[in-house]
Write a protein that binds this DNA or RNA. Structure first.
Lengths: 356, 356
DNA sequence: ATGAAAGCGCTAACAC
DNA sequence: GTGTTAGCGCTTTCAT
């Protein structure tokens, strides 16, 4: 993929006949506030008010204006509005991958709330690499968002600097820290891993394995899981690590790795439900009975987890809640309401089903 | 969900001390082209050129400017740039659901290409209802995108009018018509359904069922499938129709409906691979052997399709190609290159695997 | 190769 | 409740 470059001007714009000054720059949407105002017989600012603060405009003026808007087909220009008011009504959201349903869903819930307050979401995909995030942050900040939603708490120094320099509310999600850039709404991956280790140990499992995608938060859970087991005297926790975007295939592959290393009669903690789903498929394909021959533990509680066969035991992350709390916290700052907590732990919940 | 309303101004902006005119409106990013120009000892326009047309600026001036940019931490303001140039460098994309991987992936491929030409993607989620699309189109057009990517070819009259009024390149995808709004890059759902009917009939199947999500394009395939079978003398094609967003659960439910109506020893054409995956799970759960007791045919060839157990027979839609062709067609218009074809059929391919 | 002036379409601030 | 004026930060056009 080549570097982004400045797009050349479309011919239609370039060869616009250069009439006398001030006439030569026609926009594509040539209906402006002014034209609406003219039709309605008021001034431009009154139309602006009718749109943004209708309560400040007399009822019958409002009606004339609305008629004029309908008649002219006026579409407001938020580039101009944002420039003048220094508020773009845009909230940027950065996720590692839009093709990962857990992030896509969080964004959906977040969007719903933020949209109902009059903001639009500008979505950016960072991948799992820090340097890609830097480019993205630059590109996104040039749109002058009023707030930013981030996934994770690990950002390069450069990113942090730029984000803070923008002096806008920022919410970090899907992880937890007492010292966020601004606001954090998430949960502790260490706590998740410990709770899972404890649950499984208490259920009597003594042989543990991991199938994990190679992404920072998943690996953090892996390390914490190992540490928790070590404290219980279990030192050997073999892992099948697969590349970063979870897929059924990679789950299958991860289990294959584990089995080829002699893993048997144990429980596998997977870095996502998708990976777990693949592990289930591989087990079925090899004639292993779940949970008898192989127990499986997922992460996320995606919608399919309750409906795999057998049903997947997993950790529920309350994505609707996380999306809502993130939106609420940003909106509180944007609307200058008494700041809610800047550090929100939405927790998690172990959902025992059939696979472990 | 309440109606979008205008967000109140943040206090930080509202109570800004009103010094003398022209000083009272400070922006959050107070570093402007002007400040960079000042530091570099040139005029603002030269900095603008350094950014947008570096070849028009002397090498050593360029160097001074780049230094000044780094030193000041300047972030361009694309609201201002877009307003002045009447080009936002934004391309809007509308998908029914970002939580549907087939659309999310198409957008990913599309974004990659469009981004490398210097455009950013503004993503909107329309749901499967026409009226939601209308609101979204309005909201999106007020950001003055330079082009629009749409999913499907069914838009309300109001939408069509607004989109055409914007006088920007438009590409419709995931469907096909000889008379697009502007450009169409997709495939024919009728042809898909006919090809699948023919494939299955030729393989010897005589008992057919459908499990389909209740979305327009899926239902179109359903009707065409039935019609194709009717031409071969098969009139009865029972269907399990489930609500619009495909999920494993709904696939399971759809098969349950079909079986409860006495369906057996046949093949089920599913409206998506996800639905098919659910059908597979339900079959497994009921002890039905696939494809012996029940054959299954998917749609989409998502990444997991090759890795279900047994592997899913399905229709491949080339999403990377669709994304790329859509981007290419828009870029051709944006860059005023000789227009490629306005009507592009990317076709499809039946992928025989183990389930049918 | 660089600069000066004008203005993109809108809203903030103030006046009436 | 409505209007006037002056910008927001940038790019275009024309001039040098």
């Amino acid at each position: 993929m080549s570097e982004p470059s400045v797009p050349p001007r479309p011919e239609a714009t370039r060869k616009r006949p250069g009439g006398k000054r001030g006439t030569s720059r026609l926009s594509r949407h040539s209906v402006t506030l002014e034209s609406v105002a003219h039709v309605a017989g008021v001034s431009a600012i009154t139309v602006s008010r009718a749109l943004n603060h209708p309560d400040q405009v007399a009822a019958q003026t409002l009606e004339r204006i609305n008629q004029a808007i309908a008649q002219t087909g006026y579409v407001p220009n938020l580039l101009a509005g944002g420039l003048a008011s220094n508020r773009s009504r845009l909230v940027a959201a950065i996720v590692p991958s839009i093709a990962n349903l857990v992030y896509a869903e969080t964004i959906r819930y977040f969007s719903e709330h933020i949209r109902s307050a009059g903001y639009q979401v500008l979505l950016g995909e960072s991948g799992y690499a820090q340097d890609a995030e830097e480019q993205l942050v630059s590109a996104i900040l040039s749109r002058r968002p009023d707030a930013v939603f981030l996934t994770g708490i690990n950002h390069s120094a450069d990113c942090r600097r730029r984000l803070l320099a923008a002096r806008i509310p920022i919410v970090e999600t899907w992880d937890f820290t007492p010292t966020p850039l601004d606001i954090v709404v998430g949960f502790s991956h260490e706590e998740v891993a410990q709770a899972v280790a404890e649950y499984l140990y208490d259920k009597g499992y003594r042989k543990f394995g991991i199938v994990s995608a190679d992404d920072p938060r998943a690996l953090l859970r892996y390390r914490s899981f190992k540490a928790a087991l070590a404290r219980r005297g279990i030192a050997d926790v073999p892992a099948g690590i697969v590349p970063a975007v979870s897929s059924l295939q990679r789950g299958r592959h991860g289990l294959a790795i584990l089995l080829s290393e002699g893993f048997k009669n144990g429980v596998v903690f997977c870095s996502s439900d998708t990976i777990a789903h693949g592990v289930l498929a591989e087990a079925q394909c090899r004639g292993l009975s779940v949970p008898k021959d192989l127990a499986v533990f997922g992460f996320g509680d995606q919608d399919f987890a309750a409906h795999t066969y057998p049903a997947l035991t997993t950790v529920r992350i309350d994505r609707p809640l996380m999306g809502k709390k993130a939106a609420d916290a940003l909106l509180a700052k944007l609307q200058d309401r008494p700041a809610t907590e800047n550090v929100v732990n939405v927790g998690f919940q172990i959902i025992p089903r059939e696979t472990a």
